[in-house]
Nucleic acid binder design. Sequence first.
DNA 1: TAGATTGTTAATCGATTAACAATC
DNA 2: TAGATTGTTAATCGATTAACAATC
Lengths: 221, 221
Amino acid sequence: MKKRISDSVIRRLPRYFRYLTELTRCGETRISSAMLSEKMNVTASQVRQDFNCFGGFGQQGYGYSVPALKQEIASILGADMGNRAIIVGMGHLGTALMKNMNFAKYGVSVAGVFDISPQVVGTTVNGMQVRSMDEIEAFCSQEKPNLAILTLSRDSTQTVAAQLQQYGIRGFLNFASVELSLDGAYVENVHFGDGLMMLCYALKQEQQGGDGSDAKNSGTK
Amino acid sequence: MKKRISDSVIRRLPRYFRYLTELTRCGETRISSAMLSEKMNVTASQVRQDFNCFGGFGQQGYGYSVPALKQEIASILGADMGNRAIIVGMGHLGTALMKNMNFAKYGVSVAGVFDISPQVVGTTVNGMQVRSMDEIEAFCSQEKPNLAILTLSRDSTQTVAAQLQQYGIRGFLNFASVELSLDGAYVENVHFGDGLMMLCYALKQEQQGGDGSDAKNSGTK
DNA sequence: TAGATTGTTAATCGATTAACAATC
DNA sequence: TAGATTGTTAATCGATTAACAATC
């Protein structure tokens, strides 16, 4: 019987993944729980405890292999499943995601991008032609994407998402400043404002002669 | 002696704030911990416990006043301090933030926006003229912003941030996919990839005949 | 073998939940 | 007053940390 993995552990995995990506970039091939924990401001105990939820990835007396560990985490998270995404909304934010986000890193491919504006439909963003919303149902039934990234207005988000769910989309990454909620689908709401508020709090603490402790932080934890 | 507020509590406050904003929009003036907890998928106990860290905002037998509670939370978080921000990087992401983000809601004003590209400098985004990076030092010493929102490339982020810290900026909201870290300043890193990975995980669980439990989620929690 | 570092168990700590008395 | 709902204490639960035996 495999023990259920707690949410706290899962939520730490993307962060490990980031650091391991960084280590890979630097050409490191091996890392100990102690070194990793120092870099990440957590305890070595926690690092080992976390990895051991999924079985022993390390080697006693040596540590962990950076590429192997990175691959394991990607696999646990499903970031190597060849998920297929569509981006709905090719305004500035959609365009920014299209241009800057390394989807391949997460095993995700962008199957199509959509917009409602006739001015935008037909243009090319990062080598991909923007399609009309009118096409989206046919597109989904043919291409079967399972993920949608929504950069829409507050008003249209809920409606569009509900439609897409009908068309078979199972996961939603929502950037509109509404709390999107759908029964039977998975939703991640990205709230820039939350990060901003956490910063405001930190600044306020500082101004009020706060303890000025470690002054370090990391969003989306 | 006031008890130190735990991080878990603080990180929940922006979420309460969002729901209270929503309730305000709907014209609700009063809410009980039970109703709020149901809406937010937490326990009523936790709601009361959280608010009571800061003193009693409610009234027995009645509940909480929506506007008063919202204001209290804003105040706790420092989202009413009149913080002044600059946005550095007026690419698609910077432009999107400028256009879509309701800074006023967090008591933040945008004091200036900057870009390195000569094509962009001098243009107007959302009624604000984009300044050259050459001006940034003089601007900071004169206008004294305390917050910077960085939408820069992976390579330039760390360097620019370090400079801005010298010019008196105390808090950084970083959108580049590097882990920005600065001694003695507050950094919130926004990682879109983390949200995407959490979605991949949810989809994988589902495909593997997972328990298909509550299928609900909320980023930046 | 000696040294290093994991895997894993046990101890601690903190956060969440339950319960209920206070009070509007 | 009776009903409702908070504020707050006590009990439970889970997550983090410490410690160390296993082992490379």
